[in-house]
Design a protein around this nucleic acid. Structure first.
Length: 305
DNA sequence: AAGGCGGGGAT
DNA sequence: ATCCCAGCCTT
């Protein structure tokens, strides 16, 4: 077999991936025919750094409880944070509710459908705006997530993994592979993401099952190692502020009422670090500090709203 | 451009 | 133990 030494032409990459997608697309609820634009946005926010398998049940419960922005806007923030449960990065839940309130107040309860308006919403960045345009409104957009970045890094650039931080050149390259018409562009977005999620995975790619294995520059080069490895730093977990914040949030989520300061103090040994983290959570709007009745008594803590 | 920000399942 | 996950926001 003749292996490629030049980037594949857009159509040569797209056509096999689109055909593969028509057979292997997962049956996800936010792709169902009865989906709403708001439901698509909720799924995208939940999927920001949280895997599909964990999002799916949470999304179903969430949409059952708060079907649209109007319902979420009216909810108690404490309920929102409890429903977010352990999806991680609870600031996303806060922003999602802020987003709902913005949609209600500024857009009459209808999720906007232009890129600029979407980008102006809390918690909506370049990826999420593009994804909503494609998946909710069927519009052409450059959807460049971790999956698509990896697919293009391998097939087009011949590298094992994309660079740690996304570059403008990468966006331009991705734009060159997006089909011209709205419907096909939206389908390409879903298909290229799905390929990255199911076949062209970060850990153990299934190149033997890949629809573009005969056009992939990375495979042709013998699957060389990650040239960016020396620049990647893995985020530590044990002992970090993120772990401490997570403990505090878990305690408050499970509590029925206000939690005494002593109970909060019990979740972490290092009092200084704990105090700093609690202050941070209060500053972020994730936690409320309730002063005690007497100035000599310690305060209590609870979820806001 | 870099660093902070959760949490769990897989290796 | 480390890696990875449909990123966003601030500095």
């Amino acid at each position: 077999m003749l292996l490629p030494d030049a980037p594949p032409a857009p159509h040569d990459l797209r056509a096999p991936v689109l055909a593969w997608f028509s057979e292997h697309a997962r049956d996800l609820p936010w792709r169902a025919a009865d989906r709403t634009p708001w439901g698509v946005l909720v799924s995208e926010v939940m999927l920001q750094q949280t895997p599909v398998v964990r999002v799916e049940p949470a999304w179903r419960a969430w949409m059952q409880r708060w079907p649209g922005p109007a319902e979420l806007a009216e909810a108690s923030t404490a309920d929102v944070l409890r429903a977010w449960d352990r999806l991680g990065y609870p600031r996303r839940a806060l922003r999602l509710q802020e987003c709902a309130r913005t949609v209600v107040e500024r857009h009459g309860g209808v999720l906007p459908s232009t890129e600029a308006e979407l980008l102006a919403l809390p918690g909506v960045g370049a990826y999420t705006a593009a994804a909503v345009l494609a998946f909710a409104y069927g519009r052409r957009s450059v959807v460049l997530d971790t999956n698509v970045r990896r697919v293009l890094a391998r097939t087009v650039a011949g590298e094992a993994l994309p660079a740690p931080t996304q570059t403008a050149a990468e966006t331009r390259l991705a734009a060159g592979y997006v089909p011209d018409d709205d419907a096909t562009a939206a389908r390409w977005a879903a298909a290229s993401m799905e390929l990255g999620a199911l076949v062209c995975t970060a850990r153990a790619p299934r190149c033997d099952a890949c629809p573009v294995r005969d056009r992939c520059r990375w495979l042709a080069a013998g699957r060389p190692g990650d040239v960016h490895a020396h620049r990647r730093r893995t985020q530590a977990w044990a002992g970090t502020d993120r772990q401490v914040r997570g403990r505090v949030m878990a305690l408050l989520r499970e509590a029925l009422g206000p939690v005494p300061a002593a109970a909060v103090d019990a979740v972490w040994q290092d009092a200084g670090q704990l105090a700093r983290c609690v202050d941070g959570l209060v500053a972020d709007g994730l936690v409320e500090r309730v002063p005690a009745a007497s100035v000599d008594d310690p305060p209590t803590y609870r979820l806001p709203g």
